[in-house]
Nucleic acid binder design. Sequence first.
DNA 1: AATCATCAGATTGTCTGATAATCTAGGGAG
DNA 2: CTCCCTAGATTATCAGACAATCTGATGATT
Lengths: 231, 231
Amino acid sequence: MLNTLNTLPRPKTRDLVAERLHAYIADEQLSPGDRLPTENELAAMFGVNRLTLREATKSLEYLGVVEAKPGKGLTVGQLNLERVTDLLEFHPDLRDASPLALIRTRVIVETGVLPFVADRMRAEPLLHAQLQEINDQLRRARTLKAWVELDIEFHRLLVEASGVTPLLAFNQLLSVFFRKFRDSVKKAEWKTGIVSHQRIIDALKRGKVLVAEREMRRHIESHIDRIDVVS
Amino acid sequence: MLNTLNTLPRPKTRDLVAERLHAYIADEQLSPGDRLPTENELAAMFGVNRLTLREATKSLEYLGVVEAKPGKGLTVGQLNLERVTDLLEFHPDLRDASPLALIRTRVIVETGVLPFVADRMRAEPLLHAQLQEINDQLRRARTLKAWVELDIEFHRLLVEASGVTPLLAFNQLLSVFFRKFRDSVKKAEWKTGIVSHQRIIDALKRGKVLVAEREMRRHIESHIDRIDVVS
DNA sequence: AATCATCAGATTGTCTGATAATCTAGGGAG
DNA sequence: CTCCCTAGATTATCAGACAATCTGATGATT
């Protein structure tokens, strides 16, 4: 028997089933919560054993694409970004990314969204109040944990406010990697961070996008000083 | 019975097993190709049935994290980013992202990396030749398919050349969404795209980063004209 | 009549056991 | 020594069963 034909991975039934189920959800444009056929029905549809079908659905369920509850059945679920993030740790581009590259990524993303934030702020005054509120809470933070959570929320809100939602998802994906830096922040550095935030807020409100960008760049790049300490 | 207590998802054994296996690979710093214990051994280790363990490993295998071959056993695999990308279609921030938001994302990312590309180009002259070569091939492209592939490669190489690897991974994740735009390009528009590419290359070589950024912005935003046609 | 408890059916979760397909390694023939 | 080929190991798939859990209907109580 020719082995060269067998070496290229023969498609496994459960993967085919998973892909067809994936396509089914996409084609029918099903939304989270919509019912799917039962395991037995799906197994019959695809002409496979129920266990084979289960291994396919469980592959999709692990990332939240489908949801299964005993007695209820299968429904379409919502993608679990946290799981995706955990998986991305295995990707060379991210796993081996240098701290400097991560900081540069943040600079590009978070300065890039600022012009849109400024635009949205002009149309939606509430935005300024929200950002100000978070920064005020940051001033009152007493523990590192509380400070980190609020700092993340501040930056998340900025990206969200821009309306560039793909970058919001990306930021969420990278949050695990960024958290390392924040956890190494010393209490003395909180204050300077809060001052930077305030300058950014004020500049955005006044429509001074370039000023906000410059301040944001400085704010994020301040982490560079701690890279040698961390790694 | 209080239903509010049951609604929070009770941890399922196979997901716990999958996470522990994931952690095992990470903790042992295993690389693609490294052997894992057999299904029976792992099942015994985690104290679950072999089938339950299989549903866990298959979840990871679908995404490429582990690989299984009959007669051989389980090995560590390489993350299948294509699978992950396909699943990202289910994330609201990406699925419901407007074409305008996607274009803005590309502008932010691809103009953001240009300063670093310019730096790298000064140290590595070969880079300019590579970009030039791709653009020359673009001139010779005869089919839309060939043109699209080369266009993707041109932009991918730019991001890669910047050394900001996280953004390279992100661009790959978004490639599915970007491809929609490229597929709607008319042949008459190829030429203007190639001219833009050339201007970007030339500006980068001369170290004129701002010029390159402006040209890149115009180049990508030119897709806006076709949004109404597409959607 | 309205509300609550309970039960039956449906559905997924997990287990036991078995067979087929496939690969690895070692022994035997040349 | 080289090549082929068999035996064992390992995953792939299937079949059947029982437990856990939810939904909805049925009946009892107030």
